[in-house]
């Protein structure tokens, strides 16, 4: 039941535009508070990434050694770390690393995976079989191990970690895009486009691709949440951004050494990750995504 509802709301949304006011009010009533809250959370985190200085005035990299390991207070909302750096400022300044990392990761998976899927879906025979077998193989290796293999190849670093995370979603994107293309290809308007003399590439670009994209985009939103999770895991293991960077996973890894005395150093960044991932998943569900 729950899986059907989001697609319904998406459809009414599309149908509503020409109808006008009465329908619009019905949509507003349909919008769940959880979805609004999720959008607000993502909006705030995006603002953190764009203008961190507005939200956190303290320096995220240079600390005040005298103020080290202070518990949360009015001055330091989430306390300070061993070098006297304000944790809230570090989390706010770290948003840009997690977000850009997730964007790069989803971008890699979306572009490469969709391209492969569209090629597989629109060509027949050997090319399709080869691409889809390759996707099967990539799916047979656990995502984390595939990421680690790519990181060993590319080396440590923020961008490399993001590419590794993105590479693990290529196979899923390719499968989804292929099935969408195969579905759209069978429809009458595509046959009509071919019948009225459209070239293969032209029909693909003008008719097949736009109509296959809706579910691919919803899947991309879902991948965004898991990408943030994966990037923080790689950061925690020490394969992502190097130490002075306030990346969220790295913050938790650093806080681990003070687990007995300074609980806030591990607790706060983790809660932020959980909230952001929950919000991203909720939005994906609202887009008609495949709830995991």
């Amino acid at each position: 039941m729950t899986t059907i509802e989001p697609t319904l709301s998406l459809n009414t949304h599309q149908a509503a535009r020409p109808r006008g006011h009465a329908q619009f009010r019905r949509i507003v009533r349909r919008v769940q508070p959880g979805l609004l809250l999720s959008i607000a959370v993502i909006a705030i985190v995006v603002l953190w990434a764009i203008a961190p200085g507005v939200f956190a005035t303290q320096n995220p990299v240079l600390g005040v050694p005298v103020d080290k390991l202070q518990p949360p207070s009015a001055l330091h909302l989430l306390g300070t770390d061993a070098l006297g750096r304000d944790l809230f400022a570090r989390i706010v300044h770290g948003a840009v690393h997690s977000l850009t990392g997730a964007f790069v990761a989803v971008g890699v998976g979306l572009v490469v995976g969709t391209a492969l899927g569209v090629i597989a879906g629109s060509s027949r025979g050997f090319v399709e079989a080869a691409i889809m077998r390759l996707a099967d193989v990539l799916l047979s290796i656990p995502a984390l191990l595939l990421m680690l293999s790519i990181i060993i190849l590319l080396g440590f670093g923020t961008v490399n970690a993001a590419i590794a995370v993105g590479a693990t979603s290529i196979a899923s994107f390719a499968r989804l895009a292929r099935s969408e293309v195969v579905r759209v290809r069978r429809s009458d308007y595509v046959e009509a486009a071919f019948g009225s003399g459209g070239t293969f590439a032209g029909v693909l670009w003008r008719h097949v691709l736009p109509n296959s994209l809706t579910s691919v985009i919803a899947f991309a939103a879902l991948q965004f949440g898991s990408a943030i999770l994966a990037i923080s895991t790689l950061g925690f293991l020490g394969y992502g951004a190097p130490p002075p960077t306030p990346e969220w996973g790295l913050l938790i890894a650093e806080g681990r050494n003070y687990i007995s005395t300074a609980w806030w150093l591990t607790t706060a960044p983790g809660i932020v990750v959980v909230i952001v991932v929950l919000a991203a998943n909720r939005i994906s569900q609202g887009l008609g995504g495949h709830g995991r």
Partner: peptide, 22 residues
């Protein structure tokens, strides 16, 4: 949905913190 959104490594650290230290 909540379980999926929790980083595994953070969950482990939290469990250590609560059950071992607190």
């Amino acid at each position: 949905a909540l379980f999926i959104s929790v980083p595994t490594f953070w969950l482990g650290i939290m469990l250590i913190q609560v059950f071992s230290f607190r």
